[in-house]
Amino acid sequence: MKHIRYILSLLLLSTLRMVAQNEDPVEWEFSAKAVDKDTYEVIMTASMEHPWHIYSQYMEDGGPVPTTITFTENPAIQLVGEAKEDGIPIEKYEDVFMLDTRYYEGVVHFVQTVKVNANTETPVTLEGTVLFMACSEEQCLTPQEREFKVTLNPDHKQG
């Protein structure tokens, strides 16, 4: 009887471990590189486990939750344009949403150019959040939010 309980416990733990792994199929990394004296690229990289994907920032209303990047206001920093998507987008009609969607699998980089105001002492910290929804062909997870903090330092040159 003890052996059966032990085996059942092991099976339960391995099942829970598999479920936990699938609950977080997207890993994020955040960094910043100096482009010149006052300009930086903030790079937000999403790495997705197969078969998961996340959606573009540019989605039609009524569809899946788009990836949304929000920066905390900082009077020393100005955003230059919008965050660009650097990856290979997949465009596909999805019956569940009844519209064309645009998403990324594998790895995608979101790159936001920022300028540090003149006469601001560096390094400067930029904070924000990324809201995203991970989906596979079978299911979508609840939208998740990741907080980030990057340091804008002129010594970190673009390579």
Rank of each mutant, 00 (worst) to 15 (best):
Ala34Ser: 09
Lys2Asn: 15
Pro123Ile: 08
Pro89Thr: 04
Val26Gln: 00
Arg5Gly: 07
Phe132Arg: 02
Trp28Glu: 04
Asn117Ser: 12
Thr15Asp: 15
Glu147Asp: 05
Gln112Ser: 00
Pro143Asn: 02
Glu27Ile: 10
His53Leu: 11
Thr68Gln: 15
Thr39Lys: 15
Glu49Ile: 13
Asp86Ile: 15
Ile43Gln: 05
Phe97Leu: 05
Glu27His: 12
Glu85Gly: 02
Thr72Gln: 11
Ile88Ser: 08
Val150Pro: 00
Glu27Cys: 07
Asp155His: 06
Asn22Pro: 15
Ser14Lys: 02
Asp61His: 08
Ser9Ile: 02
Glu41Lys: 14
Trp52Gly: 00
Thr101Arg: 02
Gly63Phe: 01
Thr151Glu: 04
Pro89Ser: 01
Thr15His: 03
Gly159Gln: 08
Pro25Gln: 06
Asn119Cys: 10
Gln158Asn: 07
Gly159Pro: 01
Trp28Tyr: 08
Phe110Ala: 01
Lys33Glu: 14
Glu138His: 14
Val111Ser: 04
Val107Asn: 12
Lys115Ala: 12
Pro75Phe: 10
Gly62Asn: 09
Glu127Phe: 01
Val19Phe: 06
Pro66Gln: 02
Ile7Gln: 12
Gly63Trp: 04
Lys149Val: 05
Asp95Met: 12
Gln144Asp: 12
Phe97Met: 03
Gln21Met: 11
Leu141His: 03
Lys115His: 03
Tyr93Gly: 00
Met1Val: 13
His50Arg: 09
Glu73Cys: 14
Ile77Glu: 12
Glu29Gly: 15
Leu131Met: 12
Glu23Leu: 14
Lys33Val: 13
Thr142Pro: 04
Phe71Ile: 05
Thr120Trp: 05
Asp24Ala: 11
Ile88Trp: 07
Val26Ala: 00
Tyr40Glu: 03
His53Gly: 09
Ala134Asp: 00
